[in-house]
Write a protein that binds this DNA or RNA. Structure first.
Lengths: 214, 214
DNA sequence: AACAGTTTGAAACATGCGTTTCCTTACGCC
DNA sequence: GGCGTAAGGAAACGCATGTTTCAAACTGTT
């Protein structure tokens, strides 16, 4: 079994350690020693630690945005034919499916979700800027479709509700393992990610369709 | 105007810097220089950086849990008299009110929320353990009351929905400033925290009352 | 006024960090 | 076969960190 090359070994190790402890708490020495790679290799191949962090994200987000755009293309084309609007459920479904598909191929959903959570909360400045510049367009496209699917909602209201939901999803899936352990201990049954997404579905729809506040 | 004493100056400064940049990214030198206090003062008064972090949390969470327990005592006593169950809305309302009350006195809701978000995501190990051991009981009490208020929900389902909501709240309120800026820029009106809580109310209720998944 | 205990201050300590340097090894090409 | 470029390895650099030390300043008590 030939080892994967240095760049891949660094990325594989780095994403796991970042997901476990965060960026600042993970040193290049942690990464390189666990990856069985020379310390200087990170700076040689990636330039700096910041660039390594961005590369870790790009490895997930590049395929994600590509698939996501393709999926939205399909969805739009299909509904353009009969002139109907894309229903909210289909949009949410597409988003969920794509989020799950990408890391599924490497069995790393947990890592991907933790990284998303970190990107949001640890917001290293440079990371937030990078993600916004590289992947903001996909999010903008999605929200515009959601707008057309929920014309009854005031714009500001829809904005906030989308972020409520985003919070639920990232929070839950990024703390997945810990929560799942508690749930298993307290209620005896271990849920799969698939089941969890199933549980979220009606909640998310209900959240979007909740009555307006007085 | 006499300066507050050293311990208070350290805590006041530390909580702001922690909330802005996180724990690892904030050095003792950052804190002590901004607080105009000697570097050694942190180790003298708190023992270590870890203990300082815990002290920052305790200054919010101690009053919070005390008030929260008192508020739940009231609620239980009031309903014990006529034998009725406490409705879900009242429980959520009590939680929200207490969360808002404590930092309101020091005009630091933003800081408190960011800290909660960090506690969850940056989970420094020691912090999670500390918070769980010190304040887990209050959360347990609350969930038990929610259980009685929503007897139609399977236990596991309620568990997960509570965490969906917890995610929404922490995520939204901890990223409050950034989100509010975006919302203001895109939709023109700046919402107050009070208005935001008002927006969350129907969403949260709808989430708890959503139909069960197939 | 003198003393004991507490708090502050400046400096040093040891350590771990990201990064750079420089040398060796490996590989592809004329 | 030798040469040029790419990759790997060992060591060091400069710096920032949390923590400790120890003397000076302060505080309250007798």
């Amino acid at each position: 079994m030939a080892q994967p090359d240095t760049v891949t070994r660094i990325l594989d190790t780095a994403e796991v350690l970042f997901a476990e402890r965060g960026f600042a708490e993970t040193s290049l020495r942690n990464i390189t020693s666990k990856a069985k790679v020379n310390l200087a290799a990170v700076n040689y191949h990636f330039g700096s630690k910041k660039s390594l962090i961005q590369a870790v994200f790009a490895r997930y987000l590049d395929p994600f945005t590509e698939r996501f755009h393709r999926a939205l293309d399909d969805l739009e084309a299909r509904h353009a034919r009969d002139g109907s609007e894309i229903p909210l459920e289909e949009l949410l479904e597409t988003m969920a499916r794509t989020v799950l598909e990408v890391p599924a191929e490497r069995d790393s959903l947990k890592v991907f979700m933790r990284l998303l959570g970190l990107a949001y909360s640890q917001a290293q400045g440079h990371l937030r800027g990078y993600i916004q510049s590289q992947y903001g367009e996909a999010f903008t496209r999605f929200t515009e479709l959601v707008r057309r699917a929920t014309p009854e909602l005031p714009d500001a209201e829809r904005f906030w509700r989308l972020h409520f939901i985003l919070g639920s999803v990232i929070f839950t899936l990024s703390g997945l393992d810990a929560l799942r352990d508690i749930a298993e201990h307290d209620y005896g049954e271990r849920v799969s990610v698939h089941e969890l997404v199933q549980k979220m579905r009606p909640v998310v729809v209900a959240a979007m369709q909740a009555p307006l506040p007085d």
